[in-house]
Design a protein around this nucleic acid. Structure first.
Lengths: 213, 213
DNA sequence: GTCTATATGTTGATAGAC
DNA sequence: GTCTATCAACATATAGAC
């Protein structure tokens, strides 16, 4: 966030090495993401993560000013990857099938990265404190996600494929809550099929005429 | 786990001066509950809590073998109080209005105790590890809650006041997820009216004929 | 039963060699 | 840019006095 220095493509070794640092930072982030996704997260310390990515604790903190910044950046990158994977973007045209499928895709993907689910949940709690470095990240992320979702919902309601007995903003909130809440259940019981539950809710809220199954 | 003496069904006080210790333990628990509810929880240490309840750290740990046991017991007591407050008990007769009202009452109450919401959320995450002392507490609690809820739901569906386009167990899971997820949103934005969202969902899932509003 | 004192561990962060 | 070494801060748990 602070170090937004764009590259100064390697003309001289000095300045070139700066761009390399940025690249390495990205690589480290990606690597950390993979490790947490695969091996899980249990209140991981910087040292644990450093070992996992093949750096010393000090070496890892060289790229991030603090532990919290590190973890926040990991989640940011995860979002980046997820929104690409799901094709559910702010710029995407709102469409009912897109919404449903995009949402289910993300949720299905979550089941493959339990460590990230855990990190996300943990940081959500810590970030409740307005002083926490990740507080803004979460509030903004949640607000954005809901507004995108509400748009899709409104569209679906206009199409008549989704019940209009609840207003779009509230329903968007519900879906977000379901997603987060199911992750809590999933952490306790990794066998839970989160996507199936969400799909069932979609169907229950869909209008009989616009049945998606 | 080792010291089950104070555990078990509280039928009659055990023998001798032992009973006084149990009573004090209960009192301490209640006091800790109040403090957290009122003043909040931010990864509170045993010492912080000890200060708050007017004991030294060692004095507090005298009643609980470990920090985790202490926090788990706090949540257990909270459940105890809540289920009394809501009248939503395993023994209560399943009825649609009861379910809706009981559920909303609990959720409304949560808004008054943000510290407990935070403690609960935090411990939920930590307890994801099967080795965590609170792991069983959460799995069993969740399973029980859902089964009670599923019963109420099935009843409502038979009465025709709730849609039957989703099966009771799944819908129970949805409601639990909504409750947990809304708490996450609430932590980030204390102005959120959780009960209103849940009420809207109830209404959206209710049959037009059995409208509750 | 509750305290003080302390053992023992971990954490995140920094300084400085290379 | 990355390491080793070290730091202070703080945690929980325990021992022993009263």
């Amino acid at each position: 966030m602070s170090d937004r220095t764009t590259e100064g493509a390697g003309t001289s070794p000095k300045r070139g090495s700066y761009a390399k640092g940025v690249a390495k930072r990205e690589e480290t982030l990606t690597r950390a993401l993979e490790v947490i996704a695969r091996e899980g997260y249990r209140g991981a310390s910087v040292k644990e993560l450093a070992d996992a990515v093949g750096l010393s604790q000090a070496g890892l903190l060289h790229y991030f000013n603090s532990k919290e910044e590190l973890f926040t950046e990991i989640l940011r990158k995860r979002d980046e990857q997820d929104s690409l994977a799901a094709g559910l973007d702010i710029n995407a045209a709102p469409d009912h099938a897109d919404m449903r499928d995009g949402f289910l895709t993300i949720i299905r993907h979550n089941a493959d990265v339990p460590g990230l689910v855990q990190l996300f949940a943990r940081l959500s709690v810590d970030a409740a404190d307005p002083q926490h470095p990740a507080h803004r990240f979460f509030t903004e992320r949640n607000t954005l996600l809901r507004s995108v979702f509400a748009e899709h919902i409104a569209r679906s309601q206009q199409q008549g494929t989704l019940t209009d007995r609840i207003d779009p903003d509230t329903l968007a909130r519900v879906f977000q809550a379901v997603a987060d809440g199911l992750q809590v259940q999933f952490m306790l019981d990794p066998d839970l099929d989160m996507a199936a539950v969400v799909a069932a809710l979609f169907d229950a809220l869909g209008t009989p005429s616009g049945d998606q199954r």
